[in-house]
Write a protein that binds this DNA or RNA. Structure first.
Length: 424
RNA sequence: GUGACCGUAGCUCAAUUGGUCAGAGCACUGGACUGUGGCUCCAGGGGUUGUGGGUUCGAUUCCCAUCGGUCACCCCA
């Protein structure tokens, strides 16, 4: 047997309904906020991710699906959507559109990682980016929209919203803080775990998020980023929070919220849940004002987020029997014998053309068996056509729930069933 | 990349210290019920016990390897 590749999963019909719910809700919410869909390639030149995500990040160093195509060019299955979306924004000159340019996309991403709860090699994200506008009101609107998505999915009260400001590379407040933090971590290396001592050199901000209790005393007294923010960043963050309050978005400031990608500046945010084990982040994003320029585009600011669809789906309750039958056949046609089958096919086709889902039996089974199948498929009505009915040019329409049935002329069958409408 | 636990029918799981132990329930197909269902009863199909080696008279059971699953670390959505 040929099995699927490690870390990838089939989404079977029983689960697909939940995915559709999530995707439908996302489209509705994003479009209500003025975002338009953009569809992007699943792979890009490796260089794009190396530059956009950061050479030093784990994603680029050890988690990318990278290979050479037949021309010898190195390409990579996208590990996230932002880099490719910005590439398209630059390549097609979308920056000439009225700002902010609001785009969303959804689909599969790939990372070569060891599978774990909520983390797979092919995973799916909803990705939203608002480009060319740095107003704090936009930061708040983006976060509010994300919360609205989860409210609509009935999950809002199982999530918490964390926000932080990382300062700015350009204004220098983040570099200043990083220098200070590294000095502090080195000075107190004795009180830190080995990993944190490494982080102090590699990625100092991430040390703040260490889960080991022995590191807490040192880390809790580390210099706080907030105190180092420049005047502009301080104001931007304060105003973002004011707008969030005005939008009614409850949130907590989490000084340790330091995202893993190099390009984030100023506002960062995350939606977390206590229900998914170690992979507790369900969505996250932030501002990346220098990234578009870094990728060769105009000096436009940007802010966006990604939602892990697998993690959202895990939080959704299983659809009940009614819900899962939503898209199944609503009418089950049971011909008895070959002649009846041929006689009823035109009506079935006509119904399908009118948007009614129809399942047609093959005419070679016992009526009782077919009714049993119809019952288990959960259809509302069955149409029975036997030889006797065929001779009279009729069919029997039976309502499954009540068991009542009546004869209908074959020529009037389509209209009769359509008239049953939603109750079918 | 590191570690822990796990791998028997499509699914959920049984199989006493290695000795008819390859089974049950659900699901599927057919029959009881010659054209009226969701119940019941009966029967059937389906497994080289993840794969490959090894120990043994004999391995689902013990050992090694490998592949996969799960969870955690690293990191991250």
């Amino acid at each position: 047997m040929i099995r699927s590749v490690r870390g990838v999963h089939d989404i079977l019909p029983a689960e697909a309904g939940k995915w559709r719910r999530v995707e439908r809700a996302a489209r509705e919410v994003f479009e209500a906020y003025g975002y338009e869909e953009i569809r992007l390639p699943l792979f890009e030149r490796t260089e794009l991710f190396a530059r956009g995500i950061g050479e030093a990040t784990d994603i680029v160093q050890k988690e990318m699906y990278t290979f050479d195509d037949r021309s010898g060019e190195s390409v990579t299955l996208r590990p996230e959507a932002t880099a490719g979306l910005l590439r398209a924004y630059i390549e097609h000159g979308l920056h000439v559109l009225p700002k902010p340019v609001k785009l969303y996309t959804l689909g599969a991403m790939f990372r070569y990682e060891r599978p774990q709860a909520g983390r797979y090699r092919q995973f799916h994200q909803l990705d939203v980016e608002a480009l060319g506008d740095e107003h704090a009101a936009l930061d708040a609107e983006v976060i509010a929209m994300l919360v609205e998505l989860f409210r609509r999915l009935g999950l809002a009260d199982r999530l918490s919203v964390e926000v932080n400001s990382l300062g700015d590379e350009a204004s220098g407040c983040r570099p200043r803080y990083r220098t200070e933090l590294v000095a502090y971590l080195r000075a107190h290396a004795a009180g830190l775990c080995e990993e944190c001592r490494e982080r102090a050199e590699k990625n100092p901000l991430r040390a703040l998020d260490c889960k080991r209790p022995e590191c807490r005393p040192v880390l809790d007294r580390a210099p706080a980023l907030g105190a180092f923010l420049c005047a502009d960043c301080t104001t931007h963050f304060a105003r973002t929070r004011e707008y969030l309050a005005a939008l009614g978005v409850r949130h907590v400031v989490s000084p340790r919220l330091v995202r893993g990608l190099d390009y984030y500046v100023r506002t960062t945010f995350e939606l977390t849940t206590a229900e998914l084990g170690a992979q507790n982040a369900i969505a996250g994003g932030g501002r990346y004002d220098g990234l578009i320029k870094l990728l060769g585009g105009p000096p436009d600011p940007g802010i966006g987020f990604a939602v892990g669809v697998e993690r959202v789906v895990q939080l959704l309750p299983d659809a009940d029997r009614e819900g899962s039958a939503e898209h199944r056949a609503r009418v089950f046609v049971i011909p008895l014998g070959e002649a009846a089958l041929k006689g009823v096919l035109p009506a079935a086709t006509a119904l399908r053309a009118r948007g009614v889902a129809v399942e047609v039996g093959h005419g070679d089974r016992k009526l009782g068996r077919e009714l049993e199948r119809a019952g288990r498929l959960g259809v509302g009505h069955v149409v029975i056509v036997g030889e006797a009915e065929l001779e009279r040019g009729e069919a029997i329409v039976k309502e499954m729930k009540s068991g009542t049935q009546r004869a209908v002329k074959l020529g009037e069958l389509v209209e009769a069933l359509l008239a049953l409408g939603g109750r079918a």
